[in-house]
Each structure stands twice: as C-alpha cells, then as structure tokens.
Design a protein around this nucleic acid. Structure first.
Lengths: 337, 337
DNA sequence: GTGAAAGCGCTAACAG
DNA sequence: CTGTTAGCGCTTTCAC
C-alpha cells in the first residue's frame, strides 16, 4: 500500500505539501503540484479513507436510510436511492445504505461512530420514531417525506396536498361530478404515512370547493383486490365517471377491469394516476398523471445536505410543486344519463 | 465525543482492556468486563469508525455496486440490495452503495482507499469491464451474475439455463408444441447480459430434446410494444399455444391482449413467467412461474463474502436451482384444430 | 488477566 | 509558497 509519506519522498517534498495538493486548501506552485501529481500517478497512490476520516473528523459519507418494506413504491425508492448516490458522488461523498430493519438505533450508531457525516431518511412517517433521536444528535440531516411536526428539520417532499387538489381540479374541469379515489393499501393509512393522508386532504378540500363528490377506498395491489374495490365503488356510486389512482399495483388491474366491463377510457370514464412518468406511459392506456419526481427529490435532498455541511444550513421545508401531464386517459365527462 | 481513553479512565482500567472487552479477542475477568461495560453505557461511548479502520486496516464495510440503469428489473435489484444490507448487518458490516455511473474506476477507488473491505457486483455482463480490475486488485469480491469467464472469481446466480429448460419442460409436458418466448428488450441482448442469453440457450436446448418449436422475440416493455410483438408471433406461428415471458413489463400487457382477443388462459393458451413471486401472484391471472430468488441471491453473496474475509475463501460458482410454481396460467394444450 | 506504548496514514495548526 | 510536528482514537504487539 502506497502512503502519502512515500509520495512525498518520491516527489521530494513534505507530507503536508502532498496533502495540500490533494485538498487544494492552500496555494501550491505549479511545478511542485506537477511533481506531486506525477508521483501520485506513478506510485498509484490512493488516500486512505480511514486515516483521512480520523484526522479530519469527516468521513465524506452520507447515510441513506431506506424503508425495510420493499413492497411499497419500489421503483420510486430505487430511483431516489440512485439519484442520491450519483448526486452525492458529484460532491465527493459516498453513500452508506441503511435499511429500516435496524430501527432507530441505526441513527445512533451512525452518528455516534462518525461513520457518516450526515444522513437522509426516506419514507418518513407523520410520527416517525427516528426523529427525536435525529433532533437530539447534532447530525445534519434531510428527510424525504414530511412528518407531522417538521420544526428544526429539513424536509424535501412532493406537495401531496397540491397533488390531490390538482387531480380533482383536472377532473372537475372536465365536468366530472363523482370521483372515486383508489388509494394505497389500508396498512399505509394505518401507519400514518404522510403522503397518503395529505393527498387525501388535498383531494377532499378541492372537491368541496368545486362541488365534486369524492369516494375514497384504500386498495391492496393486484387484480383480485381491485375487482372487489371497483365493484363496491360502482355499487355505491354508479355515477362515478372519474378515478384517481394512487397505487402503482392497482393501475393496470383497474384498466383491465374497466375494459372488461365495456367502460371505455376516456370516453366513459376518466382515469388519472399519481405515479412515476414511466409507469404512466407504459400502461395499457397512456395515463394522464401527476408525476412522482423521484430523481428530483433525491437530488434536492443531497444538495440541501451539502449546503448544511458547508455551514450554509437552513432548516426549511421544500415542497416540490406537482405537475400534471395530460395524456390519453382523461376526457370530458359523459353527458348525464 | 467520548473516546476509548475516557472510558478506560472512568472504569479504572487501561485502554487496551477496553478495546479487548469490545473485540472479545482475549479473555477478561467478569468483574472487569462489567465495570467497563457499565462505563461504556454511562458515558454513551461509540467507537470511532475512522480510528478503528485506520488501526485495524479493516473498515467493516462492503461495497455494493448496482447498475445505473434503473429501468430493468428494478424490484429484483432493490430486493437484492436490501437482502445484502440486512445480511451484512447481521455480520457486523455496513454497505456502501455504488452506482454504475462511476464506471470501473469505482472499483479502483474503493479498493485503493480501503473504504470497503470487499465488494459485491450486481448486473454482471458476460464481458464485464469491471472484471479485469477486480482480478487485479486483491479485494475479496462476489459477483451476482455469471460472466463468460468466471475463472478466479466467485459468482452467485440463478441457473438461468436450467430455468429456460424448466419452462419448456413444463409446457412440453402439457402437450404444447409451439412455444413463443417474449424476451427482454433488444438492448438487453445486445449488451450480452448473461441471464438473457443463457435462458434462451436452456429454452432452445430443451426444445430440441422434446421436439418443441420455439420462437423467441425480444420486446420492449409496455402495452403497445407487446401488441406489435404478439401480432407478429401469431402471424408467424398461428398454432402457438404456450408463452414464456421473461420481461416484467410485458406480463400484464400480454394477459390483457390475450383476453381482448378472446384467448382464454389457460384454456386456449398457457403462459409461464420468469419473475419474482410477488409479480406472479399479483397479475390478473395467477401465473405459473419460475421465481427469481432475489433475497436468496443477496444473502448468498454476502455469506460467501464473509467466508472469504474470514480466510475460508473458495472461488466457486454458485448456481441456484430454479423452482417452478404451478399456478393458474398453464394447462393442457388445446386439441389440435 | 491486565498494562504500556508504538504506530496506523493523514490533516492542520504553527513556523518560517 | 513550503516544511515540521503534534495529534486524531483505536488496535495490537510486547511485557508482566
């Protein structure tokens, strides 16, 4: 293993000079810099991460805590994780992957050991048990997701309330008066996941304002569950002409069932999904949708973390404005029968 | 920050004693151990990761390199990643997430800096450009996926050849004589991804043995692409009664299209998928499938890495035996018309 | 069963 | 612009 001292000797300079060439923290003459860089190349030198972390008290690692549940929103999670990793690399940081399994203790372990300089928490719940620990530690952090009480924390999230409102607005504008919302699995609501509840709030508030009726039904993924849910909805509100779907694994089943029942999309019923763009364009009908901007969230989270690490800290809540893309699944409400 | 020295002082012992209590590398009297552990608790001590890495020359971190493409097999990738992370934790290791973006250079960076003690490579291609670097470095590593030349490397993968054979066997046993294979996107074959080519080999070999005809068609995901692909297949081989699908995003479109054309599954045509179990059971028809054992692969990879790190190294190729689960999408071939 | 002490490789004052 | 040097906190001989 090549050490900094060996590089220094090879280049005929002192260790600190090599260190400063590497960090750029003080000016170096062009000739010296070149000699050092040449030695580094020739010897194949790589700074030792542990030594660096010890001496500088910074690991250049950020921890990313993903949920253990790999059933919900997998593509979104993955996309966020990849965006976090690539953005972090662009800033010279590596990413340590923590799963929810270890529980809140992971926060303590990582902050305590100096393994990571900062952390990003995904899938934050309204009353998240990791938050007290996070507030206690002095670790810079960013949440992806918005807890009930964000005081003193930096959060990045899609503005789900606005997302819900946007969906209703679009459908109401097309003349739909009876809207059904196919939600996530009941468990998601039970554990008070912020995005689900907020979407619902936005949906309902705008519905009141526009005089539209909204019927919300949670739904497990898959074809069978969707069939049951749909039957119940149409039974209760036969006049339903608009659907808002916030459940990736219910999208395709819903479309298949509607087709099967002879209800044409968008002539008879309109469907709008809250999902990644990729899902919307790959569906059997190109779906009008509000995108879940996974990459943007990951990127934002890292950028904010970097700002904090640079001392330009600002505890703020960043809500990304939702964008609705009209595709082929929504149209004017059919004339009342 | 609490240091080991402070703990030692608090407990009235030497630093080395505290260290040994922590590592268990030499016997400690019960009373001493208790005093030390008490001090650790009272002071809230956490060993510093950097210092530990420097002194011991081991970081207790393994690097996991995931592909940058987040379009292919996302749920599988995610499941593997989570399995790797949790298994690694169980062995006292953390996981560093590397994306393919950084390219082969990431291998050098991580091995050179001692950031990680070992690495796991996912999505290994037949002629993977990371492999020469890996062979050169002395870093313990495990590949998930099987390159063309595995000499000197440890690999974990599903036995894709057997997987293909298993599919044909099942359909042939049910009397199907004309089988169509819906494959991954053409790009997957072009970049010589091992699993895709091997599956095909297995499929064809067994087809020859059983006197079955196989027609292979790559397919981009989504409904439209599937519609085109299906039309061509039925045009070319009208007698096709069995489908093998190795493309998650083609599964539901295929089922929808068959339904739409009045071809009942499994009465008229049988469909067998190569996909995670979760996808198989959530589809609109419960699919007979060969599972992609993501968790098992992740777990295996870590276990082998641990063995190597412990010196019980063994360069070997572990091929997981595929398992076919019969569900509701396959049945006897219809009588010839 | 326990202590003392020598580093691990690097950073960042401090000194010129 | 460059060199000297004192640690960073822990592991691990070596010695008792």
């Amino acid at each position: 293993m090549v050490t900094l001292a060996e590089v220094a000797q090879h280049a005929g300079v002192s260790a600190s000079t090599v260190s400063y060439v590497l960090s750029g923290k003080r000016s170096i003459s062009a000739t010296t810099r070149e000699r050092v860089e040449r030695s580094i190349r020739e010897l194949g030198y790589h700074p030792n991460a542990g030594a660096r972390a010890l001496a500088s008290a910074r690991s250049n690692i950020i921890a990313l805590m993903i949920p253990l549940r790999t059933d919900l929103y997998v593509p979104v999670m993955m996309e966020i994780a990849v965006a976090v990793a690539t953005t972090a690399r662009a800033h010279g940081y590596d990413v340590l992957l923590l799963t929810g399994e270890e529980g809140p203790g992971a926060v303590r372990r990582v902050t305590g050991s100096g393994l990571a300089d900062a952390m990003i928490l995904m899938d934050v719940e309204l009353e998240d048990e990791r938050l007290p620990l996070l507030r206690g530690s002095h670790q810079p952090s960013v949440l992806i997701g918005l807890p009930a009480e964000a005081g003193g924390l930096t959060c990045v999230d899609l503005d789900w309330t606005a997302t819900g409102a946007l969906c209703v607005e679009h459908l109401a504008g097309l003349g739909h008066r009876d809207i059904a919302v196919i939600g996530e699995a009941p468990a998601v609501y039970e554990r008070h996941t912020g995005f689900a509840e907020r979407t619902l709030d936005g949906l309902r508030a705008r519905a009141r304002q526009t005089g539209v009726r909204v019927l919300h039904r949670p739904c497990e993924g898959g074809y069978d569950a969707m069939a049951v849910t749909l039957a119940r909805i149409l039974d209760e509100r036969p006049g339903t002409s608009g659907f808002v779907v916030q459940n990736e694994s219910a999208v395709e089943p819903l479309l298949a069932l509607l087709r099967q029942q002879g209800r044409a999309v968008p002539e008879d019923v309109s469907v709008i999904a809250i999902c990644p763009d990729q899902v919307a364009v790959q569906a059997s009908v190109r779906l009008t949708s509000v995108a879940i901007p996974a990459q943007e969230m990951g990127r934002h989270a890292v950028e904010h973390l970097m700002a904090k690490l640079a001392g330009r800290g600002d505890d703020e809540v960043v809500l990304i404005t939702p964008e609705l893309t009209v595709r082929a699944s929504t149209g004017p409400a059919p004339a009342a029968p």
